[in-house]
Amino acid sequence: MSPAPVPLSERLLDIRRIYHERDIERFARAREVLERFPDAERIEVLSHQAIPGLHGNPGAVEDWVRTKQEVLVLGEKKSLTARRNGRSADWIAPSTANGCAMACVYCYVPRRKGYANPITVFANIEAVLGYLERHAGRQGVKPEPNQCDPVDWVYDLGENSDCSADALVSDNVRDLVDLFARLPHAKASFATKLVNRDLLTWDPRGGTRVRFSLMPEGPSRTVDVRTSKVAERIAAMDDFVEAGYEVHVNLSPVIVHEDWLAEWGELLEQVADGTSARTRAQLAAEIIFLTHNEGLHEVNLGWHPRAEDLLWRPDLQETKQSHSGQVNVRYRSGWKGRWVRQLTDLVAEKLPECRVRYAF
């Protein structure tokens, strides 16, 4: 007899240490999380944003994946603001989590907080829900369609985390899905690289857009560390549509190498062949080419240097200084424009039902 499959939460997480801000148990959500991991060591810290030995510690690079598996942080989200976006969403919602249990090599979040950056859960969920309900209520009816959505104001929930992974730790994401299921004129949205089928038991009622991030299987095996296989993400799309979610795709990051366009053609054919007519009819895509970072490149060399053979291509890339002063690299402007057109043309050919919301 085959052994029972290991639950997703146990495959990704083995929480042994929980760093928490002082008096965090005044929040019911924090108490729930602590009860979920009763055997974990509890360590009080002054702030979830700067934990000695965890954030900004170059010596932690060798334990990059172990840290994501074994460490959790509990804090309070003190600044509640919805930022204008206008690209993927109309608004970036206040975070209810930060960091991730997965370890995608190109992820920008470690650039900001420093090194492995495991999941931080913000325990004051009631304050976030109340803020979002009031904010959405003030917007009223959307006056005209835009690339975010033709009808609803769209709020991105997972700018600095993956909501499918966050849902393994707390009920914050479920509370948000429930909220947007009943809010008029507003829709939640998040991108994910993890198939968490627990979300299929919820009742989103069309109020949440799930954007499955896809890239060709070959590069994904190298750079999408600890994520669901791309084929598994594609196979889940019909189920999420049937469960009441809107399903889009993030074709990202697009990593250019010698055979990149042929690989993307194969991927688009897999989506076309692996989804229903109903799913394809409501499908839309965001296309985002890779932006990398000099500091993250150096960190990755300490734990996953093979991935940098794909990500760090000075022969194809140029530098650009970010607003924060960091040195980022992106594909050379003249070449990148041509590559964007090639990929959008390929989407039109291989997956004609799927409109491209934006590409850069």
Rank of each mutant, 00 (worst) to 15 (best):
M1T: 12
P3S: 13
A4M: 11
L8Y: 06
S9G: 11
E10W: 07
E10V: 11
I18H: 06
Y19N: 03
E21S: 14
R22D: 13
R31F: 01
A40D: 12
A40E: 10
A40W: 05
R42E: 13
G56W: 03
G59R: 14
V61P: 00
S79T: 11
T81H: 12
A82I: 04
G86D: 10
T96L: 15
C104G: 08
N117Q: 12
N124P: 08
L132T: 06
G137A: 15
G137K: 12
Q139T: 05
V141D: 06
K142F: 11
E144D: 11
C148N: 11
C148D: 04
D149E: 02
P150H: 08
P150M: 00
V151C: 04
D152C: 15
F180R: 03
L183I: 07
D198Y: 00
L199N: 03
P204H: 05
R209W: 04
R211T: 01
F212K: 05
S213W: 02
G218L: 12
G218D: 12
S220V: 04
D239S: 15
E242F: 00
A243Y: 08
A243P: 03
H248E: 14
L251Y: 01
P253L: 09
H257C: 02
L261E: 13
E266G: 02
E266P: 00
L267M: 12
E269L: 00
Q270I: 00
D273A: 15
A285Y: 05
N293V: 01
E298Q: 14
N300C: 14
G302A: 14
D309W: 05
L310N: 10
L311H: 04
W312V: 10
R313G: 03
E318C: 02
G325M: 10
V327N: 13
Y331D: 03
G337F: 01
R341V: 02
L346A: 07
L351E: 06
